[in-house]
Lab assay of single mutants.
Amino acid sequence: MQGVVKVNSALNMRSGPGSNYGVIGTLRNNDKVEIIKEVDGAYEIRFNGKVGYASKSYITIVN
């Protein structure tokens, strides 16, 4: 499943599905991501070869 990031500035990509996990990357508006699955209000995603988590509130599914 594919998604597009929709933010005003940037969205943190984290090592786990919550803000208490470390930041492993930054997503920008209109970045395209692969959605692997939904976990606790976040999506597990793949972006630029990395797998991490981002809030589903800022990712629009575009299948």
Results as ranks from 00 to 15, higher is better:
residue 54 A to P: 02
residue 46 R to L: 12
residue 32 K to Y: 12
residue 24 I to G: 01
residue 21 Y to P: 04
residue 37 K to V: 05
residue 43 Y to T: 01
residue 33 V to R: 00
residue 60 T to I: 14
residue 47 F to G: 02
residue 58 Y to A: 12
residue 6 K to L: 08
residue 54 A to Y: 01
residue 22 G to E: 15
residue 17 P to R: 04
residue 54 A to M: 06
residue 5 V to L: 03
residue 2 Q to T: 13
residue 36 I to V: 09
residue 45 I to R: 00
residue 33 V to K: 00
residue 48 N to V: 03
residue 5 V to M: 02
residue 26 T to G: 03
residue 29 N to S: 07
residue 41 G to V: 04
residue 50 K to D: 07
residue 54 A to C: 12
residue 45 I to A: 00
residue 24 I to Q: 03
residue 45 I to D: 00
residue 24 I to H: 02
residue 46 R to W: 11
residue 48 N to E: 13
residue 31 D to M: 05
residue 22 G to M: 14
residue 62 V to K: 05
residue 23 V to M: 04
residue 33 V to L: 04
residue 26 T to D: 04
residue 6 K to D: 04
residue 12 N to E: 15
residue 56 K to E: 04
residue 10 A to D: 12
residue 56 K to R: 06
residue 4 V to K: 06
residue 50 K to A: 07
residue 55 S to Y: 06
residue 25 G to F: 06
residue 1 M to H: 10
residue 44 E to H: 10
residue 24 I to Y: 00
residue 51 V to A: 06
residue 15 S to K: 07
residue 61 I to Y: 04
residue 57 S to P: 06
residue 15 S to H: 04
residue 39 V to H: 09
residue 16 G to S: 09
residue 54 A to K: 00
residue 15 S to V: 08
residue 37 K to C: 10
residue 6 K to Q: 10
residue 20 N to Y: 09
residue 50 K to N: 09
residue 25 G to Q: 10
residue 52 G to H: 02
residue 27 L to S: 01
residue 42 A to C: 15
residue 14 R to F: 13
residue 9 S to H: 15
residue 48 N to T: 03
residue 20 N to L: 07
residue 47 F to E: 01
residue 42 A to S: 14
residue 58 Y to F: 13
residue 48 N to H: 10
residue 22 G to K: 14
residue 22 G to V: 14
residue 44 E to N: 06
residue 43 Y to K: 00
residue 17 P to E: 03
residue 17 P to Q: 04
residue 29 N to V: 05
residue 21 Y to K: 06
residue 27 L to V: 04
residue 51 V to I: 13
residue 39 V to T: 08
residue 38 E to D: 06
residue 63 N to R: 11
residue 28 R to A: 10
residue 27 L to M: 06
residue 44 E to Q: 13
residue 31 D to G: 02
residue 24 I to F: 01
residue 29 N to P: 10
residue 21 Y to E: 11
residue 62 V to G: 07
residue 25 G to V: 09
residue 40 D to W: 08
residue 53 Y to N: 01
residue 37 K to D: 10
residue 13 M to A: 05
residue 34 E to P: 01
residue 21 Y to C: 15
residue 14 R to Q: 07
residue 25 G to R: 04
residue 27 L to C: 03
residue 38 E to T: 06
residue 25 G to L: 07
residue 5 V to C: 05
residue 9 S to Q: 12
residue 4 V to H: 05
residue 22 G to H: 14
residue 60 T to G: 06
residue 4 V to T: 07
residue 53 Y to E: 02
residue 48 N to K: 12
residue 30 N to K: 07
residue 12 N to K: 14
residue 48 N to M: 12
residue 30 N to M: 10
residue 42 A to K: 10
residue 1 M to G: 07
residue 58 Y to S: 11
residue 39 V to Y: 10
residue 56 K to W: 03
residue 38 E to Y: 05
residue 62 V to L: 13
residue 23 V to G: 03
residue 43 Y to R: 00
residue 49 G to W: 02
residue 31 D to A: 07
residue 28 R to P: 02
residue 26 T to M: 11
residue 43 Y to L: 05
residue 56 K to P: 07
residue 59 I to N: 00
residue 36 I to T: 05
residue 52 G to V: 03
residue 28 R to Q: 13
residue 51 V to W: 06
residue 30 N to G: 15
residue 43 Y to C: 01
residue 28 R to H: 14
residue 43 Y to A: 00
residue 61 I to K: 06
residue 36 I to D: 01
residue 62 V to M: 11
